[in-house]
Structure formats: C-alpha cells, structure tokens
Design a protein around this nucleic acid. Sequence first.
DNA 1: GTCTATAACGCGATAGAC
DNA 2: GTCTATCGCGTTATAGAC
Lengths: 203, 203
Amino acid sequence: MAKSPRDQDTSRPRQLTLTEQARRTQLVEVTIGLVAERGYAGTSLSRIAEGAGITKAAVLYHFPSKDAVVSAAHEHVLTALTGHVAEAVEAVPPEGGPAAYVRAMIGHLREHPRHTRMIVEAMTQGGGDGDYDPSLRWRPLASLLAAARQARGVTSELDLRTLAITIGGAVDAIVAERLADDGYDTGAAADLLVAMVDRTLFA
Amino acid sequence: MAKSPRDQDTSRPRQLTLTEQARRTQLVEVTIGLVAERGYAGTSLSRIAEGAGITKAAVLYHFPSKDAVVSAAHEHVLTALTGHVAEAVEAVPPEGGPAAYVRAMIGHLREHPRHTRMIVEAMTQGGGDGDYDPSLRWRPLASLLAAARQARGVTSELDLRTLAITIGGAVDAIVAERLADDGYDTGAAADLLVAMVDRTLFA
DNA sequence: GTCTATAACGCGATAGAC
DNA sequence: GTCTATCGCGTTATAGAC
C-alpha cells in the first residue's frame, strides 16, 4: 500500500508482480466477505470492485472473469480448511482420527465464520468449479473411520459410507447453528457427536 | 380441472377464480422443477413463463412479483413435507417418534427429489421469505426426543438441542447423497441413523 | 384474461485513452 | 496498471392494446 523509495524502481517489471499478488489477495478477501454476507448470487463484480476501492475493469485486469475471482476465493477457503483438518488428524493415533476430524472441522469453521458461508455456498451452487461431488468429502472420512476400527481390532459389519455422510451432515448443521447463534457451545456439541460416533464405530 | 356443466355459469365472476387457481398451481409446479434443476439464481421470470407456455407479463398477472411465485412454491413443498412427517409421527407411540421422524423425512424427500432441492435452496438463500431460522427445525424434533425419553423413563442428562441439530444435518446429508447417487440405499442409511440415535437417546 | 411493447436497471465484459 | 466509456444482454416490472 505505502510507497517506499524502493518501490520506485521503474526498471524491473517483476516488482509489479508483487503488488499484483497483493491486489489478488485483497480481491479474494473482499469476495469471501461479500459471499459470506450477501450470498453467491448477491456477489457482483461491481460490489467486489467497490469493496476493494477500484473499478470493475480493474478487477477484470487482475482476474480474467468474475467466476475466476470467486473460484480463487473458494479454493482459498477450502485449502485452509483441509490443511487444518489434515494437520489435526495426523497429530493423533489412528483411533483418535475421527474425533480429531470432527473437532478440527467444527473448530476451524467456528474460528472462520466468513469461510463457512463461502464453503456452503460452493457446495450448494457449485460456486467456483463445476458440480460438487459429495464423495470427495465422505471418502477421506470413511478411510479415517476404517483405520480407526482396524487400529482397535473391530471387525463387525458397518456401513462406513453412511456413517461418514452422517458425520459430515452433522458437522455442517452444528456449524450452521453456531452461525445463527453466537452463544451456541460448539465444544459441547462436538463432544456429543464424537461420543455418538465412537459408540457406533467401536461397537 | 374438468369442466362440469355447473362451471359454465358465465354470470358469476367467481368461476374465473377456479381457472386462475389452476394457473397458479401450474406456475408453482413449473417453478419447483426449475429451482430443482437450475437453482434459485437460475430461475428467472422468463423461464417460468416459458415453462408454463405463457409470457412473463402473464405470470405477473397471476402473481404480484417473481418472489411471490417462488415463495408460493417454497411454501407448497414445505407444507407437503411437514404434513407427511407429522402424520407419520402421530401414527406411532412416543418411543417410536424419533425413528418415525427420521424415516418419514428421508422417505418423503426420496420420493420427491424436486422438492428436496427447493427446500435446501430455501434454507441456504432465504429463497422465499426472509432469513431462515434453524430453531424452527430443531425445536419440534427436540420435543419429540424429550417425549420419547420420558415414555421410556430415561432421566439421564442429554443435550437434546445438539442431538436434534445433528439428526437434522444427518438427514440432509443422506438425502443429498441420494440426490447425487440413485443407487444409494436410503433405507439402510435411515436404519443406521435410527440405531445411532436410539442408542444415544436411551442410554 | 392474455398479449405486445417497452421502460429502467444491473450485470459481465471489452476497447481504448492515459 | 488503472481508468472512462460503452456495448450487449438478461433481468423484473409496467402500460396499454386487444
């Protein structure tokens, strides 16, 4: 933002790339906030531009299209979420994987409410890329569940696909409730969900 | 629908109300289908008109605005769902209420896939009325859970709000999976969910 | 009761000045 | 690199003919 003497180097074009990346980051940030509070349909190019303090045309200089901006924002929040969850899961032994998954998901989305709305919009409307594929979500979790059962030596029959889908939906609902009510205790909710899952998983 | 000789009374203007109601019904039906396959944002006045075989202006003759059409459609699917679920719940003793609720929800939405998409759009975007209030959904279910526990004489501590929210989210996810994969066995999924709930509820 | 015609607006995107 | 200006399209909604 501020202009230091070094930034005055007009000879090197690479310098401009740096400020361009800052602009891209700013635009993504503005878009996340806009989608969070006005929804995907209410997020127009002009409002993104207004939020960033530039014009529509200027936005389209940094991104080829409006969809590209939204896609970048979508990818950004999704990467942050999956990264956080993966880190949490890898930090515990296999038996604790499902519990870590649930708590990491709920915790991350609680700490980043703006990301939350963006993600649900993306799932519903295919905001960024094409159609949303639900198996991308439940398959990793199902693997986690299988690993936990194996680590505990449980061999009984269980529909892990449905269990994974159920857990995913429950997490979404808990996060949505938190979004609607700041006073909702997501920690206690996570505890109850984890208890239900563990009881089913290791039965 | 069919015209009996009595309906031929041309003197009474009330007769016209009958065909108008048929048109309204048709427009609502078209809108449900449109929202189901193109989403709320992709449902425009012209497409509704095209689907009904009339013009945009004709649509706005029967409804005061586009939002009124969508609201009517939203109300229609919601009434059908709640009616079906309420009927199913009232047909069983209190201990079976939660199970009946889960099976009725999943069953109804499986039989009416077009309704499903409309409902989720309405929840996400406030398609019809204003903002969606989650407590409208979990409170009735929480009452059901409390009644079931009381009928069984269970007095242990349990967060029924979170359990109700969890069940709702799980149902949504199961229905969504069915929407994405015709081969998904919703009956088995309902069985697993019911088992999880009963185990938690009566513990 | 349904139509044609059109108003009035917001949208995404482009061209070209600077 | 960012601007102004504008195009072309789709939208909701209205006015008035028939």
